[in-house]
Design a protein around this nucleic acid. Structure first.
Length: 473
RNA sequence: GGCGGCAUAGCCAAGUGGUAAGGCAGGGCUCUGCAAAAGCCCCAUCCCCAGUUCGAAUCUGGGUGCCGCCUCCA
């Protein structure tokens, strides 16, 4: 059931029809993190966005190959290593572990490969050598620089003109560079830094080159999607394009997909600004599915505001979606079979239409915000159906299937009560509620209400319904 | 200064030519011992100005405001 998918391509600044390099297959490279500090909310956005994109593409029948790198050789890690007196690779190992644990908690499916710089030095050196051989790079005193002047299309992704870049340079230019806009492919080793042997002496890779080398190794030339935060457009992705395309003579990626920043009071969240919201902390306080709901409530290219209490606000709407699914699943157990009435059929048709709209939304540049909007339509449709007395198995099943698949499997915003405590709690609740029902029958509402209120104080919400009491945490 | 983007109800947020999705909050009602949940109804003409068009939130030009990148950054 493949549909036409449209994707906004940063390179062309237009929405384009997605045509994969190979029919039925999708190759994806997403820039991962530099593991030198705790994972923050900003890291969660591209991860969850790509998780949804990949789940969606798989659902449509594409075979996906997803690579996400770890830049584990880097100035910041080295600095941290010197501060702590711990080997750089141990620092990165620690934060990679932390990152992956957070992503697991968020329900992000693992990529197929998580290549690290430190394990691909050979490939990197080979790529640099090729660039030197072709005249795109030059070595000076153990450093190797990429010559931007040798790549005519330099600036095509970020729409920067070389002239402007040269003038705009606010930092001190390394005198070894021939051109102020040139950038390092290889850096000569300084004492105490991790270093590897190379044709230019001991040293380490510069930033950018690892992604060119590793994407080439795992995905080959001209793969489908290249993703990451939009703060990577320049210089990182611009430089990747220069390196890779100068080396292979082919486009690096077919579609460049950049996600927006998470902001705090209109200001980007970033490590250097120190306005970080720890992902670990959020995961301790809120359900992962709610975090995903929040992250997916806005189109991936827009910036997304975060503030204290934001998730609390979103929780109400999110709960409605979850409650609808939960109740639907329960109803399904006792649903009626039989002839479909005109009303049943009409509801069924509406649900069918909504299911199509969800697919349309996701097919149009992965519009998760719109998809969620449609899923709320599904909730209203099904609740209204039940309110009017509808109880046909086929209809309820359809509603459940839609919510389960799209809200559950693809978007991952459902939390279907798996958090409900097993055994003892269930038993105790059953007992308490049975007693309370007894009191209510005796019209001892004062005591019944007291039980309900006190349970509420413990965080247990009791709802009295025609089918008997229900409770949730 | 250069480049990119955004501006839709109290808040969040879809919507790229055909007359404003959805969520939260708010008001009214139904159900109900009460409450909760749920349902029904109500609640915007889209930053400003000028154009193009039979018709624009959607296109063009000009403003204003905000954000991102140009330095490490998801």
């Amino acid at each position: 059931m493949k549909r036409e998918i449209r994707v906004y391509n940063t390179l062309t600044q237009e929405k384009e029809v997605f045509v994969p390099r190979e029919p039925g297959k999708v190759s994806v490279y997403v820039c991962g993190v530099t593991p030198y500090a705790d994972t923050h909310l900003g890291h969660a956005r591209p991860s969850v966005v790509w998780d949804v994109i990949i789940r969606f593409l798989r659902h449509l029948g594409y075979e996906t190959l997803h690579v996400q790198n770890f830049t584990d050789v880097d100035d910041k890690i080295i600095q941290r290593s010197l501060e702590e007196g711990v080997p750089a690779l141990e620092i990165s190992k620690r934060y990679i572990k932390e990152y992956l644990a957070s992503m697991d908690a968020l329900g992000v499916q693992r990529a197929d490969y998580y290549p690290k710089v430190s394990e691909h030095i050979e490939e990197i050196i080979k790529l640099i050598q090729g660039l030197v051989d072709k005249g795109h790079a030059y070595a000076v005193e153990g450093d190797v620089f990429f010559s931007v002047a040798s790549f005519a299309e330099y600036g095509k992704l970020s729409k920067q003109k070389l002239e402007e870049l040269r003038e705009g340079t606010r930092f001190e230019v390394d005198p070894k560079k021939r051109d102020a806009a040139d950038f390092a492919l290889w850096k000569a080793a300084k004492p105490g830094e991790p270093a590897w042997d190379s044709p230019w002496g001991r040293g380490r890779p510069g930033w950018h080159i690892e992604c060119s080398a590793m994407s080439l190794k795992y995905l080959g030339e001209e793969f489908d999607f290249h993703g990451g935060g939009n703060d990577l457009i320049f210089p990182h992705h611009e430089n990747e394009i220069a390196q890779s395309e100068a080396a292979t003579g082919r486009p690096l990626a077919r579609y460049w997909v950049h996600s927006g920043m998470i902001t705090l009071k209109d200001t980007k969240m970033s490590k250097s600004l120190g306005n970080i919201v720890s992902l670990k902390r959020l995961l301790e306080e809120y359900p992962p599915a709610l975090l995903r709901f929040y992250l997916l409530s806005t189109h991936y290219r827009s910036s997304l505001e975060y503030y204290e209490g934001k998730l609390e606000e979103m929780k109400r709407g999110w709960s409605r979606l979850n409650e609808a699914a939960r109740k639907l699943r329960e109803d399904l157990a006792e649903a009626q079979e039989g002839e479909l009435t005109a009303f049943d059929q009409e509801t069924l048709d509406n649900l069918e239409r909504y299911a199509d709209e969800v697919v349309d939304a996701l097919s149009d540049d992965f519009n998760t915000a719109m998809a969620l909007g449609v899923l709320f339509d599904v909730v209203r449709e099904i609740n209204s159906y039940k309110h009017k007395g509808g109880f046909h198995r086929q209809v309820l099943q359809k509603g459940w299937d839609i919510l389960q698949l799209w809200a559950g499997e693809i978007l991952g915003v459902l939390e279907l009560g798996q958090q409900r405590q097993e055994g003892l709690t269930d038993g105790l609740m059953e007992l308490i509620l049975a007693i309370r029902e007894e009191l209510r029958r005796e019209r001892n509402f004062a005591l019944a209400d007291r039980i309900r209120d006190q349970l509420a104080e413990l965080g247990v919400v009791v709802e009295d319904t025609p089918q008997g009491p229900r409770w949730k945490v």
